[in-house]
Simulated assay, not measured.
Amino acid sequence: MTRPDVLRYAAFTTDTDGGNPAGIVLGAAGLDDAAMLAVAGEVGYAETAFVTGGDGGVRAIRYFSPVAEVPFCGHATVATAVAIAEREGPGRIRFATPVGEVAMETAEVDGRLVASFTSVEPRVEPMPAEILGELLDLVGLDADVLDERHPPRIAFAGNRHPILVVADASAFDDFTFDPSRARALMDEHGWPATITVLHRLADAADGGLRFEARNIFPVGAIVEDPATGAAAAAVGGYLRELGAVAPPARVVISQGRHVGRPSELVVDVPAAGGIVVSGPAVPIA
């Protein structure tokens, strides 16, 4: 296999030491599944994005973690869009992902390129009591620490994410988990991306909601994801479905503090349709 040119970007940050690193292969048309998986394993980030072709202005893109293909990855999509905008100029980019078409807008904001993706149509389903019990046991928490305003659900906006919202800040900061056990649970239930645990912060002055997130994602050397765009989109759909926001609404999610790579994801929730997630990305030397 000819070694492809791999770019490395950090998404949802303006600092290369923050955000979520993603590998990017802009010219991946000649790579088969095994080759893409091998490249992702060598890169070692949570996901690497592969642009495998384009037709009629729509670019085909796929995502691989070091261990498997992932249906959709928000931070790698943002990073790829910024990399393309740096080379072709800002504007609209359309990606054909394994879960459907995802539209991107890239623009320069305060001297930085920012990319926004609109997710596929989100959906929210109840969380069965037995799954809630498994998740609480995984993180060593009791049900009484959960936020009554935000009941547990499983939300989809490209990937299925179980969502727990913890009311107690100390419980949120201090919970731990066994990565191998988390991986087994995720594989058992067909969750290809993250288990999302949130804590609601003080509301913004404009009435928008602010959350901090910890996204459990044991893959290779990674245990928690520092910025998860797909989960942020799922959270937007979850909040809309519960009536926790009055669309159009903006939600800000901080993530990555617990793994030393702080990030910020801006989530815009329209009255209907896909959720918009925005953030910058910067190249990693």
Rank of each mutant, 00 (worst) to 15 (best):
T97L: 13
T97G: 09
M104V: 05
M104Y: 11
T106F: 06
T106A: 07
T106Y: 04
T106I: 08
V109N: 04
L113N: 00
A115D: 05
V124R: 00
V124L: 01
E125I: 03
P128R: 15
A129K: 09
E130D: 14
E130K: 12
L132Q: 11
L132W: 13
L135F: 03
L138G: 05
G140C: 14
D142W: 01
D147T: 04
E148I: 06
R153V: 12
I154C: 01
I154N: 00
A155N: 05
A155F: 04
A157K: 04
N159V: 13
I163E: 04
A169D: 13
A171T: 13
A171C: 12
F172A: 02
F172E: 08
D174I: 02
D178S: 12
R181I: 11
R181A: 13
H189S: 07
H189Q: 04
H189P: 07
G190C: 07
W191Y: 15
P192Y: 03
V197E: 05
R200P: 06
A202W: 01
A202I: 14
D203P: 14
A205D: 12
A205E: 15
A205M: 06
G207T: 06
R210A: 08
F211I: 04
A213S: 09
R214N: 03
N215W: 00
I216F: 00
I216C: 00
P218I: 03
I222M: 13
E224W: 01
D225M: 09
A227N: 08
A227W: 12
A227P: 04
T228H: 10
A233H: 01
V235S: 02
G237L: 02
L242I: 07
G243F: 10
